[in-house]
Nucleic acid binder design. Structure first.
Length: 409
RNA sequence: GGAAGGGUCGCAUAGUUGGUCUAGUGCGUUCGCUUGGAGAGCGAAUAUCACCGCAAGGUGAUCGCGGGUUCGAAUCCCGCCCCUUCCGCCA
């Protein structure tokens, strides 16, 4: 949600942004409704002013005013509703540093880290490795939990929790407040984050209780301060949050149907920052979130690359977005493991997260990035760390948790 | 699931015979005085949103949300949402 005043004063910028993001907006309709809206507000206010000045002797006129007001208010409500719907279709404006492009092909590689492993033996993918070492049970997973369900087993089960603990700790030491966040959330959190109204199909709904299963801790944690007014000197607020994540994967029925890449349920540690509305500062924090995620991959010694998303490949709310892709030998490709978004005040406006300044109230900026998502990261670990004898080396930073250096039969 | 209570200015609270309440008080915050400095103390200021306006300022709305009664509602009526407490169940 942008500010209508900002739109009026920066119409060209907004039009350009929508065009670059590949979104259609009915600009003429929006501006006409805005004019109509303001006209009606003027008229109703005049009538109310008159009403407020009436005394007991003017009962007759009072009744008349009431009738006129009722008509105008109805008209205004109608206009505001249509206006609100159009406002929801206006996407956020990308930062100038974002490349313009139509789709994923327009994304820009920012940097690569790590040497791709060379294997002098025929490699296995994570599915084969998981089977031979009894690390993930997909068969019984689907028997019990349906399509895309799984059991993590043995060292994989321990490794996932080790990764979570390692990551939560690491960021806590950096001053992030650790949270374990609810996955079951109310609908306003999803509207507030910008998942709704667009992504309804992607979210599980618990009909009976009118609750939803969040696909990421971004949803509950960004909404943590909803409807609150924060103190400027307490910002930024930095969080590192664990949550189980649920995704219907409705738009990707045929995609990644095998293995642990695309799952309906997984665990994730998410970084979330609520900060002041100072774009340069927010961009610095955006880089900090990126660096944190990169550091975790470096600790795990996994080769990765950082991609800067182009205008056409980012969502409505984003101002700037990076993806980090980790090398997965089984695919002979990089696969997305982290996603780092700066939303400007888009989410804060919807969630009413504000702070007080000398010049008045302002909406906060919000940012989020994955810290670690599993089992997807296990694919990279298993495949990159596999040995000729079919075993898997344990990344150094995890050895203390598993009490072993190698996973073998 | 059963029963009761409650949602008011950043926070905490006052306010229910309808107008004098957008709203008192405390805390917090800001400014000033005081001090070598800090604290305490004293004084003053301090809700948000929308619309009009270059500005000063003006007008309107908002006491959970929506509707109703009324010339007029924080205060009365109806519906909804949310929270708390007790009982029950339970990792």
């Amino acid at each position: 949600m942008l500010d209508i005043k900002f739109i009026r004063e920066n119409l060209q910028v907004c039009k350009e942004a929508a065009k670059n993001k590949g979104r259609d907006v009915d600009w003429d309709g929006l501006l006409k409704l805005d004019d109509k809206r303001r006209e009606l507000i003027g008229l109703t206010e005049k009538l109310r002013e008159e009403r407020n000045k009436l005394t007991q002797d003017d009962r007759e006129r009072g009744r008349e005013v009431k009738q006129e007001l009722k008509k105008l208010e109805e008209e205004l409500r109608d206009v505001e509703e249509k206006f609100g719907l159009l406002m929801l279709t206006v996407p956020n404006v990308p930062d100038p540093s974002v490349p313009i492009g139509k789709d994923a092909s327009g994304n820009k590689e920012v940097r690569k880290w790590g040497k791709l492993p060379k294997f002098n033996f025929p490699i296995l993918d994570h599915i084969e490795l998981a089977k031979s070492l009894d690390l993930i049970d997909f068969g019984r997973g689907t028997k019990v939990g349906g399509f895309r369900a799984y059991f993590l087993k043995n060292d994989a089960a321990q490794m996932e929790l080790a990764l979570m603990w390692y990551t939560l700790n690491k960021l806590t030491k950096k001053g992030y407040t650790p949270l374990i966040a609810p996955s079951l959330v109310r609908d306003f959190t999803l509207f507030g984050n910008g998942q709704f109204p667009w992504g309804r199909e992607e979210v599980y709904k618990i009909e009976k209780d009118d609750l939803y299963l969040a696909g990421t801790a971004e949803v509950p944690v960004t909404a943590y301060f909803s409807d609150e007014i924060l103190v400027e000197k307490d910002l930024p607020k930095k969080f590192v949050a664990f949550s189980p994540c649920f995704r219907r994967e409705a738009g990707s029925y045929g995609k990644d149907t095998k293995g642990a890449y695309r799952l309906h349920q997984f665990n994730k540690i998410e970084q979330v920052i609520i900060t002041t509305a100072e774009t340069n500062n927010s961009l610095t924090l955006h880089e900090e979130l990126l660096a944190n995620a990169e550091e975790i991959l470096k600790d795990l010694e996994l080769p990765y690359r950082v991609m800067l998303m182009c205008t056409g490949d980012m969502g409505e709310p984003q101002v700037k977005k990076y993806d980090i892709e980790t090398w997965m030998p089984g695919r002979q490709a990089y696969g997305e493991t982290m996603s780092n978004s700066f939303m400007g005040d888009f989410q804060a406006r919807r969630l009413k997260i504000r702070y007080k300044t000398k010049d008045g109230m302002k909406y906060c900026h919000t940012l989020n990035n994955t810290a670690l998502a599993s089992p997807r990261i296990l694919i990279a670990i298993m495949e990159n760390y596999q040995q000729k004898d079919g075993s898997i080396k344990v990344p150094k930073v995890l050895q203390q948790f598993l009490n072993k250096t190698v996973i073998k039969r």
